[in-house]
Amino acid sequence: MPARTHLSAIVGTGAIANAHASALRAAGDRARLVAVVDIEHDRARAFADEHGVPRVYPSLAALLAREAVDLVHLCTPPRQHTPLAIECLDAGVTVLVEKPPALSLAEMDELVAAERRSSAHVATVFQHRFGAPAVRLRRLAAAARLGRPLLATCATLWYRDDGYFAVPWWGSWDSEGGGPTMGHGIHQFDLLLSVLGPWREVRALAARRARAVHTEDVSMALVTFESGAVATVVNSLVSPRQTSALRFDFERATVEVEHLYGYTETDWTMTPAPGHEDVLSWWADAGPSSPSSHEGQVTAVLDALDRGDPPPVTGADARNTMEFIAALYASAFTGLPVRCGQIAPGDPFYRRMDGTGAPWAAVAAP
């Protein structure tokens, strides 16, 4: 039996909230979902009835005033993530927030500052980090078992038609913070960054090719890492054959994964370099397998809470990914390379991801 059962609440009962509810249910006695919050009472009530949640609240403030919860899951639209996460931290409640955790580096730093003054913690949902193959790859890379990382490719090629953007807050800098770079490819390149470590420089472009939105619908980046490795990152919402793909070329092996919205063990392959066939045994010596999922990350969060540790992915981890996004947009919109640490307070791309403005801002949408 676990040392304690962690009482949880979900704020925002849209589609992604179902993944959180399922992950909490899979945790068994380790967690109990005791309340949900949504400004639309009927939707919240229907969600609560479906998942067997006893109480419904109209606001986070009402929840925090009445419930002694250990963990809040933020599943609201992105614009609300930072203020609601800070509200949780100020109340001493740990919060697991859906991506992106903030709409800008400025907001991200406000969130990190709130965590520093709180007894609680903030973690961001990046569930692709938690599948067994990704954990294994990071372990092998960190131990240099695969040799030096040389080259990587990261592609999130998805398709969203005009009807998708009928949701008012999608495709807007003010409410979503960006296009596929911010809201879709973020999972793939967060996993890329978690494997390859600190990045040094980004050279990028972004374009609005087909969708009547304020943000980009395509972006591309060339990335240099502190290790010397180089990578390409492509994010798209205009690609009819959808795929999510990562490839890592190390000195001794190529490791690849291709999936769509979540991988399993069978989606990964390893190809040894000539003379290095022994790497296959290291890859095969995997132990229990698990897919990328909210369940995997929620389990890791509960493990951390049991130990009294900050849950993964920490504010500092998420900030690294957010800074990469800001650098990509800054490079794309200025035409200049952007180095890690370059975007500081006072830089227009620190306050907003579109910074000085998208090049197409004054042009009619296609």
Rank of each mutant, 00 (worst) to 15 (best):
H184R: 09
V363A: 10
R116I: 00
P133L: 04
G92M: 02
G287V: 13
V122W: 00
F189P: 02
V255H: 05
P240V: 02
W169N: 05
E256T: 15
F47E: 11
D217M: 14
P58Y: 06
L84M: 15
Q297M: 14
Y329H: 14
V53W: 01
R339W: 04
T82H: 02
D70T: 06
R139S: 15
W199I: 10
P337C: 02
W360N: 12
R200H: 13
K99C: 10
A141K: 03
A17T: 02
V135H: 03
P337Q: 01
E107T: 04
S8R: 05
V11S: 07
V37G: 06
T124R: 06
P240F: 01
A361R: 15
L237N: 11
A35F: 06
V279Q: 10
L192I: 04
C340Y: 14
D162H: 14
P133D: 02
L111W: 02
R129I: 01
A155L: 08
T271Y: 05
A361K: 15
G185L: 09
A65Q: 09
V112N: 10
A46P: 01
L222R: 12
Q127R: 13
A35W: 05
E67Y: 05
L191R: 06
Y159T: 11
E87P: 03
V11R: 09
H259M: 09
N320P: 00
L71I: 08
G197T: 08
R139L: 12
R148L: 11
T243D: 05
P310T: 14
A210R: 15
V257T: 13
Y329G: 05
I39R: 14
A35K: 08
V202L: 12
E110V: 00
W158L: 15
E110P: 00
V233A: 09
V338M: 08
P311Q: 05
L237E: 11
D29V: 06
V298H: 07
A365F: 14
A358F: 11
E323P: 09
S227I: 07
S118I: 12
R66V: 04
I86R: 12
V93C: 07
H214M: 13
A166L: 14
A19V: 00
L24P: 02
